[in-house]
Design a binder for these strands. Sequence first.
DNA 1: ATTAATGTTCAGAA
DNA 2: TTTCTGAACATTAA
Length: 284
Amino acid sequence: MPELPEVETMVRGIRSHIEGRKLVAVERCPCKCRPLLLEPKLPAIRRRTLGQAVQSVTRRAKRVVIEMTGGDAFVIEPRMTGLVLLSDPPDVEHLRIVWRFEGVQAFNAVWFWDRRGLGTVRLLNSEELAALRDLGQLGRDALDMTADDWREVCQKTRRPIKVALLDQKLVAGIGNLYASEILHRAKISPFQPAEDLRPAELRRLATAVREVLEDAIRNEGSTLGDGTYRNALNESGSYQNAHRVYARHDERCPTCQRETILRTVQAQRSTFYCPNCQQQRMIR
DNA sequence: ATTAATGTTCAGAA
DNA sequence: TTTCTGAACATTAA
């Protein structure tokens, strides 16, 4: 599930503990789970990174980027159930990869844990890292978007705005959960074609994106009912308590207190919305 | 036994 | 060209 706020929480959780520290080992965990998607293979990874220090820990969309002093960077993509941990994994069976650091401090390792095993870990050279950073394969980070950026992006497609928000090539970082929350906060119908959004709606969208994502980061992300998402110390996030529509179908809308939150399906993903607060306009 | 779940990526069709 | 659909990845819980 990790979306932008959860991945940002992972980055903040490990950054101060590993920046500047020397990497002494990268190991596959001795678990029975299927080999995770790891590129290149371990010997090449070790040859290129062991003995180097961590230069920086940053986020690109929904990926954790650990740049080494040699110029290569680990890119961790948690996908559905991946976690980046300093300690205390939910279970030992689904640990996948461990990075060990020199010295004696509170935390000497970072673990990648992934129950479903859809996540990936890659080592990119500086050229590939630059390509990941620029727009093209991934759009601008959702937290960097201005109202003008939103106008530009929305003009590119007639797809419903909810579906467009999930297209990482348009805007990077928003996933299914936050898309519903953002549109409810912005009072925009999930069915409204992106191209048809008016200037006032684009401004509300820009504001809502910032407010929802920043609030979610402050709350260390959303831990849903299945309890999978955890921060670097295996603690739950708390933003799920602030959700206004996600998975709240059949409850009364907390904003208008009049209508019931509905669930529908768009692009094979659940959408939650209030039919009163988020009415679709017929024409431009 | 069937269904759905937060993400990404591909092929192929409309 | 754009958009949509389904499948694939693997696991768990209802």
